[in-house]
Write a protein that binds this DNA or RNA. Structure first.
Lengths: 225, 225, 225, 225
DNA sequence: TATGAATGAGGCTTCATTCAT
DNA sequence: AATGAATGAAGCCTCATTCAT
């Protein structure tokens, strides 16, 4: 009990400091926000520091330079998002429902992680230069394909999916419909209004996304709902 | 002979210079290339000037500052691309084929204008701040929806399309599948390999894009192909 | 006359500006002084700028970065010094006197260009990394050897110099005695007092330098003075 | 057995640690290497620490700051080198041979202690500011002159050396030829090639250095060898 | 219409050093 | 005696932009 009190006092006095991992995470969170908001060149190290509970100097202490901070921010963004995906349990569902569930989940998941989407957009603007170097990110993503392949295999075996589905291509479709919804919202709504981005509009888009992706994999005899 | 004379006069002494419109276009082309390659903050006025047959000073002379140059570059990029789209003639086709043709064309058109796609990506990174101010761009795009609405109307009237299709949502789907294919190619191929971006892979993606978009609009009785 | 007046007025108003070559030289002079005083890493671009009639920004405009400024400063230091050497006319003197004259001149010349000596010291501290890249400097110096070789050839032909003198080795001896006198004056006088660096002391060192270098080349029969 | 035990005890558990003097020497050796390689401003405390078996923090713990570390490194460099010189025994040789031996030895000694030479170069770049404050170094060096004076006295008494030789000036000559050989090797070989710095070239330089220094002190009647 | 020279503001990064245990 | 974490000051350099002709 006294020990616990001492620790708490220690924390009260010096706060979160002397906890390297906490400082790292604090910086990374600020970096993701700043990079997502302004891009790689547009981000200012000073602004990242200002969003932090520590100083600019610490950014260099922990990450070396802006580019490496960006690399870690990108990896962190991927790790956060993919770890959320892993919680989705689909094995107990019939393949058709599993796929529908996965598409809907992906659509929602992208929608609720706009900063991640923006990091990926920025990576694409920079020709995936940074992502290419990260084995960690590659590993995370390959797992996503594996899960999809497993669903396809079950569906084909059950005769509800047509044979010969390419899981990577299927992933591409799901990603396209989910990613574009977030990435291109600014231009799309500037050009065509906000209609599609109301709660109602999003539900309709989501439902149709599920519907057309499923239509793409169903065996001929199986009617659409 | 007269033609030759004109060319010679144009080239004489100062060449393409002294032709303000040519200088503008020269600068704009360089600007689009540079902005598309590096983003708004990443683009360097010096580098744009270097890609030009004129000097940095002229950029300021013609466009005032970097932001306004970007605005013109964005408008120019849209104008170039949309003008290409207008040449597509679909009125004589049955609605189903018209839509299939439109989807395929859009897919191809995006693919062959990567710099335009990148400009739009960059606009999205910047929250469409610049695009919002351009009435010209809005007008260009609304026309695209009108054409789609017309096809839908024909399809519904003929009973081949289900009733109540929302043309904006349809446009969103077509755009998503076509845009993502170009915008996210760097990250996608870094993660999952180049398979989908070979000529063969692209044809498969294109065919499936057409297929699922059509599946989304067909009336229930109408079988998929 | 009016024209001349206009020019003068132009100069009076805007001073030395708009004369790129003058600005370059102004910067180079300041750079040599600063690098000679503080070394490559010790030199401060801000301090160089302060010694200048222009601004720090111009240093980057003209020279790109600190390293390249240093390169140009080094080349300039060599060029200045070697051009002074070229004025020495030795062809009309008998070889023995020509050599004596050259040694004495080199001794004096080094003594009166301490900043140059310091630049060379600094280059040596940095393993001649910069000098190695400069063809200009190499060319300047090879000429010095040629002149010495010519004197040796004359002396050998006349029988006053022993045969088989290596001009490069001779140059090394002359350089050593002349260079060390300037380069190591601080430590030498800190350890052994200022005696050798008074005017009288220097004259004695100079005389002996001439004497021993000559002793090194004389044919056996030829007595020392 | 006892020896082995001692070593084991020294190494036991924390190895060389807990032995302040060993830590000091470890740091000093790293500092000399780093200062010699990069100069005073060019040396990085971090890099010195990296060359050490201890941490950067210990450098401050033992030496206070960079400047004082440099002072100790300089003193250490002098002490190491001069202690080597003391082993030379010349009293039993005739003065001519003693001097020849001393010149040759100095030439070789400088050659085999390039880091020391570089420390002295660096001191000179910094106007001997640090050396001036060190009585220890002054004492070490004055001894060298004394020894030379003794040889001269013997030579003059024997009539083989001319009278009135200034030992400090003689030391200056010997030092010049020995020091320059190491200090200016980088620039000299960059300009004139490596010829003089091969084993053969060095032997020739050494022999001539001995020869001309002796020529400078011999009485007129005494022939050169 | 055209241009080479110039520039202030602000960006990223490094450095020796000290804090707190 | 030892140490990992932290830091302010200052360094180098880049950027969009304007001046003066």
């Amino acid at each position: 009990m006294p020990v616990r009190t001492e620790i708490q006092e220690g924390d009260r006095r010096s706060g979160w400091k002397q906890d390297p991992e906490a400082v790292r995470q604090d910086i990374l969170a600020a970096a993701i926000a700043e990079f997502a908001a302004n891009g790689l060149s547009g981000a200012r190290v000073d602004d990242i520091a200002a969003k932090t509970r520590t100083s600019k100097r610490m950014i260099y202490y922990y990450f070396g330079d802006k580019q490496r901070l960006y690399e870690h921010a990108l990896e962190d963004a991927y790790a956060q998002v993919r770890s959320g995906e892993e919680e989705l349990e689909l094995d107990h569902l019939p393949p058709e429902e599993a796929l529908a569930c996965l598409v809907g989940f992906t659509f929602d998941h992208h929608r609720s992680h706009p900063d991640f989407i923006r990091m990926v957009m920025i990576e694409n603007v920079h020709h995936a230069q940074t992502l290419e170097k990260s084995d960690m990110i590659r590993d995370l993503n390959v797992a996503a394909i594996d899960r999809l392949a497993e669903i396809c295999a079950r569906g084909e075996a059950a005769g509800v999916f047509r044979p010969g589905i390419n899981p990577t291509r299927l992933h591409w479709q799901i990603s396209a419909l989910s990613f574009f919804n977030v990435s291109n919202r600014p231009t799309f709504s500037a050009l065509f209004g906000n209609e599609l981005f109301t709660e109602q509009g999003q539900e309709a888009l989501r439902a149709e996304a599920v519907r057309i992706v499923l239509a793409g994999v169903m065996a001929d005899g199986e009617g659409q709902r």
